[in-house]
Simulated assay, not measured.
Amino acid sequence: MCTKVETIEAPQLPPPKVSRMLEKMKKKHNIVTDPASDEKQKEVEYQPDLLAISTQYSKIAYDFFKRGLAHLQDSKAYV
């Protein structure tokens, strides 16, 4: 009894698109990554996290507008 065995190759995925905003943030904060290099990975461990930085700036902006809105609502012109 013979059976035919077919091998199915996984389709190759296109390379991921590079975000311009992410690249600008990396350049601004001097973040260099290379998944193949252990030295670069160790350097990256001590560099600032882009998500943490953007969250911090978002909180500052939110607090600024929140204080401004509270001040506006306390004014006589708003009432």
Score class of each variant (00 low, 15 high):
52 A>D: 08
20 R>S: 10
16 P>I: 05
22 L>S: 13
59 K>V: 04
26 K>R: 15
47 Q>V: 00
55 T>C: 12
44 V>A: 13
29 H>W: 15
28 K>W: 09
28 K>G: 01
15 P>A: 09
16 P>Q: 11
32 V>E: 07
13 L>H: 13
35 P>M: 07
39 E>P: 01
33 T>M: 11
51 L>P: 01
15 P>E: 09
37 S>F: 04
44 V>F: 08
52 A>Y: 02
34 D>F: 08
32 V>K: 15
40 K>G: 00
49 D>P: 01
60 I>N: 03
18 V>R: 15
51 L>V: 08
49 D>Q: 01
50 L>T: 00
59 K>I: 08
45 E>A: 14
60 I>W: 10
54 S>Y: 03
31 I>S: 02
39 E>C: 10
33 T>S: 15
15 P>W: 05
19 S>E: 05
49 D>T: 00
16 P>M: 07
29 H>R: 14
61 A>C: 09
33 T>K: 15
44 V>C: 12
37 S>D: 11
41 Q>H: 05
39 E>F: 14
21 M>K: 14
21 M>T: 08
41 Q>A: 11
40 K>D: 03
29 H>K: 14
46 Y>W: 03
36 A>T: 09
53 I>S: 00
44 V>I: 03
13 L>T: 11
35 P>E: 08
36 A>Y: 02
10 A>W: 06
14 P>M: 08
23 E>H: 09
40 K>C: 04
61 A>R: 11
27 K>R: 13
37 S>P: 04
60 I>V: 14
31 I>L: 12
26 K>I: 04
54 S>I: 05
12 Q>N: 13
58 S>E: 04
21 M>A: 14
14 P>Q: 12
58 S>C: 07
10 A>D: 06
21 M>D: 06
26 K>V: 05
29 H>T: 02
10 A>E: 10
32 V>N: 12
37 S>V: 03
53 I>M: 01
48 P>Y: 02
43 E>P: 03
16 P>H: 09
51 L>R: 15
59 K>R: 15
36 A>M: 11
28 K>F: 11
32 V>S: 15
42 K>P: 02
53 I>V: 13
37 S>Y: 04
43 E>L: 15
44 V>L: 12
13 L>Y: 11
48 P>R: 02
46 Y>D: 07
34 D>V: 05
